[in-house]
Design a binder for these strands. Structure first.
Lengths: 330, 330
DNA sequence: CTGAAAGCGCTTACAG
DNA sequence: CTGAAAGCGCTTACAG
């Protein structure tokens, strides 16, 4: 990596232009010359410096990802989708975990400058104007899970409120009335929307008197804790809607520890349909989000934006969801 | 991002050196001058181009990760550990999924050249000599899950065979004799070692006549399939050791579908102790690997290597494991 | 305290 | 087909 194009040129007895040409196949080079270059490169273990390359070509062939975290099956699936299309297009991925802290977020953005051709940002906390301020002007970026109608950026969102509505409605049709909600992380766009969907369904069915909401943070352990909190209440719910599958799984675990049968005594619904949900015991009824497609689509959007930066028009996309019935409700 | 240091300098009426100085705090700059620069930078939405910066400083403050995949809780946890220490040290992470294909692997390496200060490579398939050939000479790199004693690279490994031995031994002490193994991905270093540990325990207890091994690939679905295969055999095992938790979870799901009680009819042990394992039903007995520490440690190693490239000496580390008994065995 | 200039490792017209 | 030179956007001695 210390060996430069200059060394290779010297060793091969040619100019650096020639070396560049054989490495980029950008012009025809005589076979013997080419051979000499290749040999020299091999001997010196030469690999072109991509930073230098980016600088001259002002293209990096990499997309930057700024996410609130990259952990758990939710992000895994989204990443998997992104990786698939990036890799097909011969793009690399640069990751920065923004942790939801604004200063950290700014730092991540700065770190990306000049090293990526486009940005995918999932920042469920930051709002429209702030994003406008923080995100560099000239770089194609798509926003995930925030500000559905941001005038300046492409946007991909999950139909959260619809999904929550579907989930709760399913429970109601099954005869449940006291349906508890385990909420996602506070201040988070998707959490708020899922809460809203829950409330809408409750209200629409005149069940407001039975409404009960407890806090969570989208993690299994927070779902576990929330379920215990629910069990401690004098009037226990007969059903729980957790704002994501991780919490639903955690909640089921807590219920089972307490010897409470799922779904017979308490029914549970989740949201996301992460892979684990079809392997749990009982299998989780949930709201299916095609997470892989979500990631895939987001990556496709940046890529087209990168390709024709000039003609690109802002587009807002909503990912549909559907109820998938398994065995955790009754 | 299109705005350069030159534009800022012009707008502020100073030289580019001065702009550079205020941005890097690398020398004292008069307050009024500084103010002018900052103002100009703000107006132009200026962010220093990191590619250019890397080139002149020949330091990138980023570590490249080449992994066989970045999906599932196993990788999530490892990544979480890496991210924590990288982020503390103010380093970014660049990811490339090598997918175990050699050509893809080479491409990943090339893509990293000049864009990272160090490399963490998990390539359970490639062997010592190949790695030597493929990895650029001058870049500090640590190898994960491969070639324990590679003479040229730092190495961090999990004590796989010991762990497998512990798991199987636990089952034997519980009175099981027909203990099936669900293997991990073929040709994989860690899979081979886990298989080896299984066989050692079986042999040491004179149980060779009961040995039964089926194939898997470290995924939940492969564990599910493998369990079904086991159930189809004329003599069913009374216990299953899955080479990782994901497969163990998949296997339990298959057993439960068939109405087989875990652990009463068939006991199950896993390996890794991914977060889900303490939330499953029943909770999974497994071999605990401190995955987060694994990632953390690997990142720490590259970072020290990056810091003193010259004095650094190759070091081989083994991560210890331990049996954690929960409720899936009996 | 600040500026002019060289240099980081490449690519790409421009000549020949 | 190949080379010399300019330039990408920075940083960093070197002067003053």
């Amino acid at each position: 990596m210390k060996n430069t194009i200059k060394e290779v040129a010297k060793q091969a007895g040619v100019s650096i232009s020639t070396v560049s040409r054989v490495f980029n196949n950008t012009a025809f080079v005589d076979e013997p010359t080419k051979a000499k270059v290749l040999l020299a490169a091999k001997e010196l273990h030469y690999t072109p410096n991509q930073a230098a390359r980016s600088l001259t070509k002002s293209e990096t062939r990499t997309i930057g990802l700024i996410l609130p975290g990259i952990f758990g099956e939710y992000f895994s699936e989204v990443l998997r989708g992104m990786d698939a299309v990036a890799s097909d297009a011969d793009f690399d991925i640069m990751i920065s975990g923004a942790k939801g802290i604004t200063t950290k977020f700014e730092k991540s953005i700065r770190a990306m400058a000049g090293r990526v051709d486009g940005l995918i940002i999932m920042s469920p906390i930051l709002q429209g104007a702030q994003l406008r301020e923080l995100i560099p002007v000239n770089i194609p970026t798509v926003l995930l899970n925030s500000d559905e109608e941001h005038p300046d950026f492409d946007t991909v969102n999950i139909n959260n409120s619809e999904g929550a509505y579907l989930a709760v409605n399913h429970l109601i049709r099954l005869g449940h009335r006291r349906i508890a909600l385990i909420k996602g992380s506070e201040n988070t766009y998707d959490s708020q929307q899922r809460t809203e969907g829950y409330r809408k369904a409750i209200r629409a069915n005149g069940l407001d008197q039975y409404r009960v909401e407890v806090n969570g943070s989208f993690t299994k352990s927070s779902g576990y804790d929330a379920a215990r909190e629910l069990l401690a209440q004098e009037e226990r719910p007969t059903a729980i809607f957790a704002a994501n599958d991780a919490m639903a799984l955690g909640a089921m675990s807590a219920l089972q520890e307490h010897g409470i049968a799922v779904p017979n005594t308490i029914a549970v619904v989740g949201f996301d349909d992460i892979p684990m949900s079809q392997y749990s015991n009982p299998k989780l009824t949930t709201i299916r989000v095609d997470l892989k497609h979500f990631g895939r689509y987001a990556m496709e959007r940046v890529l087209v934006a990168v390709r024709d930066r000039s003609t690109h028009k802002v587009e807002h996309t909503m990912i549909n969801v559907e109820l998938v019935v398994r065995s955790s409700c009754h």
